[in-house]
Measured scan of single mutants.
Amino acid sequence: DWREIAKLAEEALKKQQPVTVNGQTFNDPNEIKKLLETAQKAI
């Protein structure tokens, strides 16, 4: 669910920690931002 992904990505950016989505881990803040943008577009 994109809403859940957006929430996870936002928290990861705030806490500056990696986030795992669908078994894929994102460590890079730039990648997390991209993930968040993608999720927000999909909602």
Rank of each mutant, 00 (worst) to 15 (best):
D1N: 14
D1P: 08
D1H: 14
D1R: 15
D1E: 08
W2R: 02
W2P: 05
W2Y: 05
W2T: 02
W2S: 03
R3F: 15
R3T: 14
R3C: 14
R3Q: 13
R3P: 12
R3W: 15
E4G: 06
E4L: 14
E4H: 08
E4T: 12
E4I: 10
E4V: 11
E4D: 10
I5R: 02
I5A: 03
I5H: 01
I5E: 01
I5N: 01
I5Q: 02
A6N: 02
A6I: 13
A6V: 14
A6C: 11
A6E: 08
K7C: 08
K7H: 10
K7T: 09
K7N: 09
K7G: 06
K7R: 15
K7A: 07
K7I: 12
K7V: 10
L8H: 05
L8R: 09
L8C: 05
A9Q: 00
A9H: 01
A9S: 04
A9I: 13
E10R: 12
E10C: 15
E10M: 14
E10W: 10
E10G: 06
E10K: 09
E10P: 00
E10Q: 11
E11G: 05
E11T: 07
E11D: 11
E11Q: 10
E11V: 05
E11R: 07
A12C: 03
A12S: 05
A12I: 00
A12T: 00
L13Y: 04
L13H: 03
L13S: 02
L13Q: 03
L13P: 00
L13A: 02
K14C: 10
K14L: 15
K14Y: 14
K14G: 08
K14V: 13
K14P: 01
K14H: 13
K14F: 12
K14I: 13
K15L: 13
K15R: 13
K15A: 08
K15Q: 12
K15P: 01
Q16Y: 09
Q16K: 13
Q16H: 14
Q16R: 14
Q16C: 10
Q16F: 12
Q16E: 11
Q16S: 11
Q16L: 07
Q16G: 15
Q16W: 08
Q17N: 07
Q17H: 12
Q17R: 11
Q17A: 09
Q17F: 11
Q17E: 09
Q17S: 12
Q17D: 05
P18C: 07
P18Q: 07
V19L: 15
V19F: 10
V19E: 00
V19I: 14
T20C: 07
T20M: 08
T20Q: 08
T20P: 01
T20L: 07
T20K: 08
T20I: 13
T20E: 07
V21T: 03
V21M: 06
V21R: 01
V21F: 11
N22W: 13
N22K: 08
N22T: 03
N22L: 13
N22H: 09
N22M: 15
N22D: 05
G23I: 00
G23S: 05
G23W: 03
G23A: 04
G23T: 03
G23C: 05
G23F: 04
Q24R: 13
Q24H: 12
Q24E: 10
Q24P: 00
Q24Y: 11
Q24S: 08
T25F: 10
T25N: 05
T25Q: 08
T25E: 05
T25G: 02
F26K: 01
F26L: 09
F26I: 10
F26P: 00
F26Q: 02
N27S: 15
N27Q: 11
N27D: 11
N27K: 14
D28N: 10
D28I: 03
D28Q: 06
D28A: 05
D28S: 10
P29T: 09
P29V: 12
P29I: 12
P29Q: 10
P29K: 09
P29L: 12
P29R: 12
P29S: 07
N30W: 15
N30V: 14
N30H: 14
N30Y: 14
N30I: 13
N30D: 11
N30R: 15
N30T: 12
N30M: 11
E31A: 09
E31L: 08
E31N: 04
E31M: 10
E31T: 08
E31Q: 10
I32V: 07
I32R: 00
I32D: 00
I32T: 02
I32S: 00
K33Y: 08
K33W: 11
K33I: 13
K33S: 08
K33T: 09
K33A: 13
K33V: 11
K34E: 11
K34G: 06
K34N: 10
K34L: 13
K34M: 08
K34H: 11
K34D: 09
K34R: 10
K34V: 12
L35N: 00
L35C: 03
L35E: 01
L35M: 06
L35A: 02
L35K: 00
L36P: 01
L36Q: 03
L36M: 07
L36T: 01
L36I: 07
L36F: 07
E37A: 08
E37D: 11
E37H: 06
E37P: 00
E37M: 06
E37I: 08
E37L: 12
E37K: 06
E37S: 06
T38Q: 14
T38S: 12
T38R: 15
T38W: 14
A39D: 02
A39H: 02
A39L: 06
A39E: 01
A39T: 03
A39F: 03
A39G: 02
A39S: 04
Q40Y: 15
Q40M: 14
Q40W: 11
Q40N: 14
Q40T: 11
Q40V: 13
K41P: 02
K41M: 11
K41S: 11
K41F: 04
K41T: 11
A42Y: 14
A42S: 09
A42W: 14
A42F: 13
A42R: 10
A42Q: 13
A42C: 09
A42P: 03
A42N: 13
A42M: 15
A42T: 06
I43E: 05
I43S: 06
I43V: 10
I43Q: 06
I43T: 05
I43P: 04
I43M: 10
